[in-house]
């Protein structure tokens, strides 16, 4: 019983990690209509930027904000100078660009910072939770994931800019006709997604250590989480992340053993998508022909 409780709480903590990256994926999907394979690597790269700033002597809080700002600008530049050129290219070309970005960020990070694991600081590491169930930083990840979820949800639901972004992702031509500046909206979407990724990276690195491959496994689960929750829904991404995290632990500990937990977790995701393609909270896409 004690173990069960530990496994569930630990699954929620791991799930929160998947959820924050899934949120960045959802942000990008809602503003551009694409799923960015390089989201995890961009987040890893941002985290290295933060690590460098902290190593240079900058206080954690300042480094955090500066990194978010740099990532925002970097994401926008990436859209303006790279993705922009593939605006009218077939989907397959865009996918190839994403893969190129994935490999590029990974290789450049390895080249600049080397492959040795780095310990990334946590702002709450000095606090104790008083229980062996969950660490202070894990609670912090959960809290920040919750806050980001509310912000994103509010942003897309209640602000004009959020509405414009959804419009652009859904139908660029009509959006332009009603006076939305499509290209800048797309760039803004990339910038915001990169910032969310940066926050996610800085939250995850204290748990997994910082190295160029920290996101490889996480991104896979984050994809699953985003698809499971509904790829256009911020609350769906968080729920999806938590479900995947807990399912992975319980399956590994009690049902199929650790060897098969990943496969079985992903099979469940596939099954959900077969019977409910829009995910748990996603909207059904209906396209008039």
């Amino acid at each position: 019983m004690d173990q069960l409780l530990h496994q569930v709480v630990n699954g929620l903590a791991t799930g929160a990690i998947y959820a924050v990256i899934a949120l960045a994926l959802v942000m990008n999907f809602n503003s551009t209509g694409h799923i960015n394979f390089a989201q995890g690597e961009m987040a890893m790269f941002s985290t290295y930027v933060a690590w460098t700033l902290i190593a240079m002597g900058m206080p954690y809080g300042v480094a955090f904000l500066v990194t978010v700002a740099i990532s925002f600008v970097g994401g926008m530049l990436l859209e303006r100078f790279v993705l922009h050129r593939f605006r009218n290219a077939p989907l397959l070309s865009v996918v190839v660009v994403f893969i190129a970005l994935f490999l590029g960020f990974n290789a450049v990070a390895g080249w600049i910072w080397g492959p040795v694991l780095k310990d990334f600081p946590s702002p709450v590491s000095s606090y104790k939770t008083g229980t062996s169930l969950v660490g202070a930083h894990e609670l912090f990840v959960g809290a920040v994931a919750g806050a980001m979820l509310l912000l994103l949800y509010g942003f897309f639901r209640f602000t004009t800019l959020g509405l414009k972004m959804r419009a652009v992702a859904c139908n660029p031509t009509s959006s332009r006709l009603v006076g939305i500046r499509v290209s800048w909206t797309l760039a803004l979407g990339w910038g915001l997604a990169a910032s969310i990724g940066a926050v996610a990276g800085m939250l995850i690195a204290p748990l997994t250590f910082l190295d160029p491959h920290m996101m490889t496994g996480i991104l896979l689960y984050a994809f699953a989480a985003a698809l499971l929750g509904g790829v256009d829904s911020p609350p769906g991404a968080v729920i999806g992340g938590l479900v995947v995290g807990v399912a992975e632990n319980l399956l590994g500990a009690y049902v199929v053993g650790a060897e098969l937990k990943m496969s079985v977790a992903l099979v469940i995701v596939v099954l959900v998508l077969v019977y409910r393609p829009q995910g748990i909270l996603g909207r059904v896409t209906v396209r008039r022909v």
Partner: peptide, 20 residues
């Protein structure tokens, strides 16, 4: 015994199994 994959971000669940 408890296995983990090279890509696993966390091995906490496996350690919990062994410790229990």
């Amino acid at each position: 015994t408890a296995a983990h994959e090279l890509t696993d971000a966390s091995i906490d669940s496996q350690l919990l199994q062994l410790q229990s």
